[in-house]
Design a protein around this nucleic acid. Sequence first.
DNA 1: TCGTTATCGTTATGATCATAACGATATGCC
DNA 2: GGCATATCGTTATGATCATAACGATAACGA
Lengths: 155, 155
Amino acid sequence: MPRTSTKADAPVRRVASGYRLEDQAGFLLRRAYQRASSNLVDRIGSYDLTAPQYATLARLYERGALSQNLLGRLVAMEPANIRDVVLRLKKRRLVATRRDATDKRLILIDLTTAGVALVEQLIPIEIECTATTLAPLKADERRLLYGLLGRLAEG
Amino acid sequence: MPRTSTKADAPVRRVASGYRLEDQAGFLLRRAYQRASSNLVDRIGSYDLTAPQYATLARLYERGALSQNLLGRLVAMEPANIRDVVLRLKKRRLVATRRDATDKRLILIDLTTAGVALVEQLIPIEIECTATTLAPLKADERRLLYGLLGRLAEG
DNA sequence: TCGTTATCGTTATGATCATAACGATATGCC
DNA sequence: GGCATATCGTTATGATCATAACGATAACGA
């Protein structure tokens, strides 16, 4: 019998009921995202880019110049976070910023020519990477997963 | 015509091809996880617990005392990260640590009585929270999603 | 017009995350 | 026994993340 008596913070034993962490959606989603993110970093890591940084560049490539705040919403990042990402990308001359002429609150972000060139290199790699992530699933299962995830994210 | 001429880092325009960030698995998974995590924090935030902290406590509740390293693997955290989580939980007296008698490398982590009491309060809340996250889906869709996510995480 | 409200970006704080390098201890094999 | 290898925990660095509070600017309504 282990001595779990006197000390106030002594370890305790118990029996787990029907609850399992693996049955919780958040835990499953976290692990799946870890896997996907790790797949991406494996491939674009040599470019010294993270997944959120890539998403930011890709969004700018799709949409052209955007205000920092809107850019953040479009990549699902809070204002304080997109700011830091933009700063890092700006330091590397992948994006450029300028003030909006009519709305003095806005900072417009856009890709530089170097940023465009990099994104165009990366897009095919990201598409391959998505294929790797989804490799365990068949085509119809992938479509199913996308639909389900989309509905989860929308709420 | 905007003046994108002289400056080296001047913004550039371009046309997006068939590529869409929304079609990339990593981005979808990140947003779905954000949603799930936010649902959880909305409910257990008043306990000053994060999702990873809860997962750590729940795992200890299921399994009893574990080495720090194994605990980390069971909640999908690197050694450096689980260390910090354990430190925070220990500071709040929710877990206790002790040295393994036979293997001097190991630090055994276990719930305190306070930790057990907290987990038992939190488990029903987490189950509700998972229900909230999965609310957009029907029962058969939830099972489907779990199966697909599980296969993604396994690789 | 003036005052209220909303939006944008910043700052600060604290908690994940991943990675690499390192010492200490175990384990394996010879 | 002794040495190579593996595992465990730590440290350090840097990049997300979320939240709250704040000043500046816009937008809106009385």
